[in-house]
Amino acid sequence: MTDSEPTPLPPTEADETGGDASGNKIRFGKAAVLFTVFLGILAGVGTFTFGYGKGASYLSNNPETCVNCHVMQEHMDSWQHSSHHHVAVCNDCHLPHHFLGKWVTKADNGFFHSLAFTLQNYRDPIQIKPRNQRVTQAACVDCHQDVVHAMLPVNAGEDMQSCVHCHSDVGHAFR
């Protein structure tokens, strides 16, 4: 060694355990382990819940999926007697018709529906939320453009009468 090089210090107990004298790395290691355990528990509970709640079935277009929750049976029965039974399924009216919007809405509704049904925190009869009313309105307009074009707002962003205001029994008869 030359005079310009610093003399190395002998290893301390903290260096051997991976932390400094105050033990910061050790605490970080415990926090990381606890965080990892927490994520593991959360993933396990989520996986169990997804399986128990038949979560994969919600990725389909099958109307029978909607009655996985018993509170939806009346809606399913009324849809089967509606004029749209042979031309539209739940996703056609209750999800946007573009790819990204469909999956974002499906995830959003899936989370909040499962939360409400699990916690038994929902109105009976079930009420459609304003954001889902907008989705349904857009689906009506999209499918029936040739008929409703004269009723569309002149300026973008203006409101129009809700289709289900006059046609409340089209998607779900006897309501």
Rank of each mutant, 00 (worst) to 15 (best):
M1N: 11
T2W: 07
E5K: 09
E5F: 01
P6F: 13
P6R: 12
T7G: 02
L9P: 00
P10N: 12
P11W: 00
T12Q: 01
T12P: 00
A14H: 05
G19Q: 01
A21P: 00
N24W: 14
G29T: 07
G29I: 01
A31T: 10
A32Q: 01
F35G: 15
T36Q: 10
F38T: 04
L39W: 08
L42V: 15
L42P: 02
A43G: 12
A43D: 14
G46N: 13
F48C: 09
F48G: 06
T49C: 13
G53W: 03
K54L: 11
S57N: 14
Y58P: 02
P63T: 00
E64A: 15
T65Y: 08
T65V: 12
C66A: 10
V67D: 08
C69Y: 00
V71I: 09
Q73M: 04
E74Q: 03
E74F: 05
H75Q: 07
H75N: 05
M76W: 10
D77C: 00
S78Y: 08
W79A: 08
H81M: 06
H81Q: 09
H85N: 13
H85L: 09
H85Q: 08
V87Q: 12
V89Y: 04
C90Q: 13
C93N: 01
H94K: 02
H94P: 02
L95I: 07
G101E: 07
K102D: 07
K106R: 15
A107E: 06
G110N: 13
H113E: 07
S114Y: 13
L115F: 15
L115A: 12
L115S: 10
A116H: 02
F117V: 04
T118Q: 02
L119P: 00
Q120F: 08
Q120D: 15
R123D: 13
R123H: 11
D124F: 01
P125I: 01
I126F: 01
Q127H: 13
Q127M: 11
K129A: 09
R131C: 08
N132H: 11
N132Y: 10
Q133L: 13
T136E: 14
Q137V: 00
A139K: 06
C140I: 03
V141C: 11
C143T: 05
C143A: 08
Q145P: 03
V147M: 14
V147G: 00
V147A: 05
H149T: 10
M151E: 08
L152Y: 05
V154P: 01
A156K: 14
A156V: 13
M160W: 09
Q161A: 13
C163Q: 04
V164Y: 06
V164G: 04
C166M: 08
H167T: 01
H167Y: 04
V170F: 10
G171Y: 05
H172I: 03
F174E: 15
R175T: 12
